[in-house]
């Protein structure tokens, strides 16, 4: 565990806490894409199947359980909470998830490192995570007056994957046999999707204006 990896995981955790804070404090999930949240739950579910087969560390197990628990609780609030569910922008959240789920599944079947069910599902989760933010970015573009917590949530999510790239560079330089091009390419693509958002996020911050995407 290096400092970049720890910082990345903590940023990821904080992003989720910021989203939960938004939902609890404002009793609203306005501007949040349920499609992206569904995709993240799927990502965690398929990636962490090894919870039952492989023990890595207490840190690893606890974090996996936290990510699973929080992602499903967010979905619960957005779908079923009697107040929160009414604030969901269903009409605006129109991205068709099937257009990214199917290609990712096909890609995972074709390009993977081991022909086993667990490994293919794990690879699928890597591909899917790379593009799971797309419905959220589309929804943000359609949202007038993006609130601070929503903007910071997306910013932290992008930062988390960017920090993972530093972690991969560090591990590549310090650990022999550390080669993971499937993860690296997906991670770079994932971070790249945020470049546009980052640009407008910093512009709004510098000019002290509310964030909005053109």
């Amino acid at each position: 565990m290096n400092i970049f990896r720890l910082a990345a995981d903590m940023t990821h955790l904080i992003s989720i806490l910021v989203l939960l804070l938004k939902i609890h404090a404002t009793r609203s999930c306005r501007g949040i894409s349920l499609k992206t949240q569904d995709l993240y739950a799927l990502v965690f579910l398929f990636r962490y199947l090894d919870l039952f087969t492989r023990y890595i560390s207490l840190y690893n197990t606890v974090m996996k359980l936290v990510f699973l628990g929080t992602s499903f609780s967010i979905i619960y609030f957005m779908r079923f909470h009697r107040v929160v569910r009414n604030t969901y922008d269903k009409e605006q959240d129109t991205f068709r998830s099937i257009f990214i789920v199917v290609p990712c599944a096909v890609l995972a079947l074709l390009i993977n490192q081991e022909r086993s069910v667990l490994e293919i599902l794990w690879t699928f989760s890597i591909y899917l995570e790379a593009v799971a933010i797309l419905p959220q970015l589309v929804l943000l573009q359609r949202t007038q007056n993006i609130d601070n917590l929503t903007g910071n949530y997306v910013f932290l999510l992008g930062t988390y994957r960017g920090l993972y790239i530093l972690n991969w560079i560090y591990r590549y330089l310090t650990e022999p046999h550390y080669r993971q091009w499937i993860v690296w390419l997906s991670g770079v693509l994932q971070t790249g999707l945020y470049v546009d958002f980052f640009y407008y996020y910093f512009l709004a911050w510098r000019n002290n204006q509310k964030l909005s995407l053109p």
Partner: peptide, 10 residues
Amino acid sequence: NVFKGTHDEL
């Protein structure tokens, strides 16, 4: 297996 590396990541 050298590819198992990142399975220790989240």
